[in-house]
Nucleic acid binder design. Sequence first.
DNA 1: AAAAAAG
Length: 628
Amino acid sequence: MAWADVLSESTQNLTHQTRSTRPTYLPPHLRQLGGRGRGGRSNRNSFPPPDGPNFNQRQRATPYDIITEKLEQVEMTDDGNNNSAVINLDAYEDVPVEATGSDIPPAVKSFGEIEMCEALNENIKRRKYVKPTPIQRHAIPIVMAGRDLMACAQTGSGKTAAFCFPIISRILRDRFEQVVSGRNGARTRIAYPTALILSPTRELSCQIHDEAKKFAYQTGVKAVVAYGGAPIAQQLYNLEKGVDILVATPGRLVDMIERERVSLKMIKYLALDEADRMLDMGFEHQIRKIVQQMDMPPPGTRQTMLFSATFPDDIQRLASDFLSNYIFLTVGKVGSSTDLIAQRVELVQDMEKRSHLMKLLSTQKANGTRGKPALTLVFVETKRGADALEHSLSMNGFPAIAIHGDKVQRERERALRSFKSGATPILVATDVASRGLDIPHVAHVINFDFPKDIDDYVHRIGRTGRAGNSGMATAFFSDKNMPLAKALVELMQEAKQEVPSWLSQCAQNFVGSVRSTRYGRSKFGGSDFRSSQNDYYYPSTNNNSDANSFMDTYTDGYNTGGYAAHMSFDNYASAGARSSNADYYGAHNPGPYAHYSTADDYPPNNIDAFAANGNEYGYGSIVASGWD
DNA sequence: AAAAAAG
């Protein structure tokens, strides 16, 4: 079958596909009617209205300032060693920045401009953070000024530090100014943290905790982590010894609160990492419970910071419940560090994915760099699929290990360690690993199953190309993914990536058939939803609903070129991929992108190399092995 | 029809 036939056939099939099955956005005031199958009393209007000073004024804030800038060149900080903490700031040259809100504190150019205690400064030096990244330059002064913040910054750009520094710094300042502290004395077993950092996965919470501990070293500020899947006793013991910053996943935290071992009464700083995920379906209820139904001080009396690389409008609406007169900050909205990730998309049907993956991996293997295997992260849709693919790869001589939520925590951590160390250079993962995890030296992210939500794609590929390093991402795109073609094309264009013509074609064929925001209008970062005049804004609790006029000024900041050069295709296939197996990327397929368009292209000549075993997962019997 | 997060 010729390539054109495949395309036309696949587009014909599309007409039979059902439209998006993702639930459409339901305004909060209608949710109790069961729209998302979430019963119960979680209607936010039923919460007692918070009585913070700014609470009811937050949407009535004075005309908003808009700060738009492009950064001047910042120094390269690479000191030559391979320390992953060193960020190649050169890569962030010309990153566009936009801040909206009232009275926006000016950005700083160096850590020196921020008033922080000496111990914290020492720790920053220890971590080899010479100059702040763009998100840090802007976010730190905002947090230091006591302002609430909703921040979008590209993956791998130092978000954790952007909220950890100022939180630690402010805790120290508070302690100095008012001697009073919420720390528990010997008489109570209840812990009273002053800062709470929530994240969507256990591994991410651990990672944030590790970072926070390093930054807080010798400052007297104590960070403790709490997450499920591990014995609770040790975590409780750590809390008893005193805690300032509690890093937690939602479930375990609620458990501890209900056991009356933790109280949120003294919380002054609340940070949600991967905030859009935290407020997405499935998590929102738990987060609301923690933030609005426990003893947490209301917005305006605590400081709230939300961070993510993506922030859809509907999620921003939900999030504004938690915030008071906040500043919206976008860093790297268009060009973004994902310039550093060379993205490629291949049309691969489900049946062919495994053999295609193995071909790809064997090419890569043959060209490993510096004697070290290139770390490759393969994303799949389901837990079962992850296990099946892990098995299949292992049986064919590819050192792979899987990580997903059905594994016990020890196994999850073991898999991650084994991957990081290079012992198992292929990690097959579900979305448990898609967000926030900082794994140095991931060379290649493969979207074996294309994600259902384009924002997940952004987060997944963000596992490579971190801290200013380059990386590559390959997506297998099948007929089933056509509804996302348009969003993918737009995203790739914004990241200055070459879009294969067949994909543009698919996108065009789908125009008008998908209206959902989540499918249609995704991009790196986002824009302040308060500025879109047409969207009805749902004010919370007892506010009046005259919301449309609350922000009158808005300019569309970015625009036109000037971003750091992105990689050409030659760079893309680097890491030696053009040597012995060059036809994989080159001669075999004349275009800049390699497609396996027909059955004749496959199997590759050396298929025996990885399918000779004849086991049930071998080439040819893929269908029977769990991919139903 | 999926992943994650409590046990």
